[in-house]
Design a protein around this nucleic acid. Sequence first.
DNA 1: GCGACAG
DNA 2: ATCTTGTCGC
Length: 224
Amino acid sequence: MISGVERWRGPDTVAGAEAVQGELAARVEIPAGPVPPPRRVAGLDVSYRKDSDLVAAAAVVVDTRTLEVVEEAVVEGAATFPYVPGLLAFREVPMLLRALDALTTPVDLLLCDGQGLAHPRRCGVACHLGVLTGLPAVGCAKNHLVGEHDEPGPRRGDRSALVDGGDVLGCALRTQDGVRPVYVSPGHRIGVDQAGDVVLGLCGTFRLPDPVRRADHISRRALT
DNA sequence: GCGACAG
DNA sequence: ATCTTGTCGC
């Protein structure tokens, strides 16, 4: 269970949402050195239904040592904000906070399906969730949003920095030999290198980290 | 004007 | 994200 979550007040305009991100971005903390390795990670994801605003959000807590599932939570609701590139958090965060509240297990880190710092205003969905919960958070996106990077080497674990405006925001990480890289960036209370390490350590034999895959499956199944 | 554009 | 079967490639 996550306590002390401040009530989310969603803006209703693009300008308002961007202003909120400016404020949240200022509250993101990125430590210079390593932080204690997370023991329990919550993978998060949201699924949508084609012809309605019904959505399902899932949170799956996984033990990083055994890769065993500790707890799962799924909630359903209505989408209240449209998808706008750069403003994904306003569409998904309200539901994800509800899923997190449904958990009874304390978690050490949030692993989100989307960007963290690798965002136009350095405030991707992982930053929103990290700041609002106070927990360390990492963003792991399947596609690129911002930042330039060299093509990572072809093998599992190969990575190259994501750079934008002179800042290293994250990395393009090859999580399996020959697969397309994922885009990893810190959301809160963790550094770029360690964020990549955490994601790689949770990928098993798949491109995406296990907790996120499980959250995807569960949220999708909930809409059936 | 022409791309790019997390989910 | 979602609608969807078979099929091309390793």
